[in-house]
Design a protein around this nucleic acid. Structure first.
Length: 574
RNA sequence: GGUCCUGUGGUGCAGCUUGGAGUGCACGCCGGCCUGUCAAGCCGGAGGUCGCGGGUUCAAAUCCCGUCAGGACCGCCA
């Protein structure tokens, strides 16, 4: 039907008879005898010179047969990849009419996202979405071939899985053949891939869809795609090496340059220095420990186990509204408050702050020297327990210093030595930070019973520019260690058997030491595409409230469907 | 569950602070003119439940309350 794509013709094609197909991007009509039709497909745009009597409109689907020629002197368009040539002596065939599009099919005009999603098929025609979807395809191809090259075997796992209470809320699927019983859609193929290791698969990978029924965000959809891997007889460095290689290939394929060495930082250092377990290393602005300055202070707000500061260069110019907003933000994040000090002089130290009247000269001087503040800077201080201080200041650090998504390069880093447990639940029992099969750090195993919250794990995250790209761990394959971890979690053997019996059963038949990882492909692609939102790299995403404005999903189903499934809807309370 | 922002012809925005006739800009759309444009140009035209509901007022796009939708964030995401 066509001989070339619209974006590939150049001066070397002059004289060739071609046939192109696509959408009418724009028509410039000069009257009865001359009109220019810009014909567009995903590859680009070619200018066709046609008889003005040809009736075509924006977004009509047409084919054009004509002859390529170099454009006349002075009419070359340097803005256009095909601007050296045009197609003349055109025979135009209308393949399909089109109503005027609901928004311009180009990237110039910002359009409300709900309108874009309602007409996603038009939106996808725009260069931005075409670029993103094709970049995504290259990334997935690079990831897949990197895993194959490294000896990993691609295996599919079930979408209809069994409920595993704990962790993310699962999407539940009613069984037609077994009324009152349910499958769930997997939040990840975690247990399935561990069973593959018991099965001797040795090195598994999958481009896996995962589903979690949790609230949506800019970087979270109900359904997302992971590069999921698991390998036997490996250390965490082996896993990290395999993933680093795959992700480097993907970066190369997406943006044409290699990302360079991934940095490494322990979880504790990441929290302590950047206030986050997913530090954005594109900028410094590290958290500064000024506990010494306020040791034995009379300022009650600073009488806390941990006092840290954030230095905001030039921040003294922030107005009261902005500062109040920062204080509100700190409270929203769980802090008791936020102290701010505008540095008005460094020698002698002087600050403008509601708390200034409570400070001694030594504290004032320590505040300035301890943070390296200069005149005109702003110092933000949070005092609380260590974890809260880091968390609050880490979020403020991002609010105040984070570069735009497309700037600052790509700083991959591995965050290692995550804690095994993540606080305690209402009953005072430790909660698994990653999942209950995560291997404790070898140096810490003997503290599982005596001091569980201090135990590190062999769990690790891959982080890019402050986004968690994925996480993984070495798994427990020894029954005695698993027993101890279940004990620490307060899971009885009977409970463990009923929840994970099939996995524990499998482990009794010869479980190799193993570990794995999963990379969030949507996030990786978004960052590589310079998009701050994964919806921009997903063809048909959901809105923040989990709806699809195009299809209207979710929708009620017919009474008969419910009857087949043995379901009866109950009205929402209230 | 919560906080904040946004909602005005098909699209993007201004108007809202300080209430006074659906006022304005750009794009698009329809018709006409036009033989080298490329975000073509010129002339003319059509197109509105100011998200929805209520309240205050002589009078509401504008102020107040509620609600819906979209977005950002907190909770949540082992």
């Amino acid at each position: 039907m066509r001989t070339h794509m619209c974006g590939e013709l150049g001066s070397s094609d002059a004289g060739t008879r071609v046939r192109l197909c696509g959408w009418v991007s724009r028509r410039r009509d000069h009257g009865e005898h001359l009109a220019f039709v810009d014909l567009r497909d995903h590859s680009g745009i070619t200018q066709c010179v046609v008889d003005g009597s040809v009736d075509v409109r924006s977004e009509w689907v047409i084919s054009v047969e004509g002859t390529v020629r170099a454009r006349p002197e002075g009419t070359v368009n340097a803005e256009l990849a095909t601007g050296e040539i045009e197609v003349v002596d055109c025979i135009v065939e209308v393949l399909g009419h089109a109503e005027p599009p609901p928004f311009p099919v180009d990237d110039r005009a910002e359009t409300d996202e709900s309108v874009r999603l309602r007409y996603r098929y038009v939106d996808i025609r725009r260069p931005r979405m075409q670029r993103n979807l094709r970049l995504r395809a290259r990334v997935v191809e690079a990831l897949r071939s990197a895993m194959v090259r490294q000896g990993f075997c691609e295996v599919e796992t079930p979408l209809l899985w069994t409920p595993t209470p704990e962790g993310a809320r699962e999407f539940t699927v009613p069984s037609r053949l077994h009324h009152g019983s349910f499958y769930v859609l997997p939040q990840s193929p975690q247990i399935a891939k561990q069973l593959l290791m018991v099965g001797g698969t040795d090195r598994y990978f999958q481009i896996a869809r995962c589903l979690r029924d949790e609230d949506l965000r800019a970087d979270r959809q109900f359904e997302f795609t992971q590069l999921d891997i698991e390998a036997s007889f490996v250390s965490q460095e082996d896993i990290q090496g395999a993933i680093t290689e795959a992700v480097a290939d993907a970066t190369e394929a997406a943006v044409g340059e290699s990302p360079g060495e991934a940095e490494r930082i322990t979880w504790h250092d990441a929290m302590d220095r950047y206030g986050s377990d997913k530090p954005d290393l594109r900028f410094a602005m590290e958290l500064l420990d000024i506990g010494q300055v306020f040791a034995g202070t009379s300022v009650r707000a600073f009488d806390a186990p941990c006092v840290k500061a954030l230095l905001v260069r030039g921040g003294a110019s922030l107005g009261r509204n902005r500062l109040d907003a920062l204080v509100d933000r700190a409270k929203e994040l769980g802090g008791k408050g936020l102290a701010w000090f505008k540095v008005t002089s460094t020698d002698p130290a002087a600050v403008d702050s509601p708390l200034d009247k409570f400070l001694g000269d030594a504290e004032r001087a320590g505040l300035v020297s301890g943070t390296g503040a200069a005149e005109g800077d702003l110092v933000l201080v949070v005092a609380d327990i260590w974890h809260t201080v880091c968390r609050v200041l880490g979020a403020l650090r991002l609010d105040l210093g984070r570069p735009p998504i497309t700037e600052g390069g790509r700083r991959f880093c591995w965050v290692t030595d995550f804690p095994l447990f993540d606080g305690v639940d209402d009953a005072g029992r430790p909660q698994a930070a990653h999942h209950p099969f995560t291997m404790p750090h070898p140096d810490d195993i003997d503290r599982l019973t005596s001091d569980p919250l201090s135990v590190r794990s062999q769990a690790y995250d891959l982080v890019l520019n402050g986004w968690e790209l994925g996480s993984g761990s070495i798994r427990i394959h020894r029954e005695d260690i698993q027993r101890q971890v279940f004990d620490a979690l307060g899971i009885s053997s009977g409970e463990a058997e009923s929840r994970f019996g099939f996995l524990l059963g499998a482990f009794r038949y010869g479980a190799p030491p193993h570990g794995g990882f999963a990379v969030g492909i949507d996030r990786l692609v978004a960052l590589l595409a310079g998009e701050g939102n994964i919806r921009e790299v997903i063809a048909f995403p959901k809105t923040q409230s989990g709806t699809d404005p195009m299809t209207g999903a979710p929708k009620p189903v017919a009474e008969t469907v419910l009857r087949d499934l043995g379901l009866r809807p109950i009205p929402k309370p209230g």
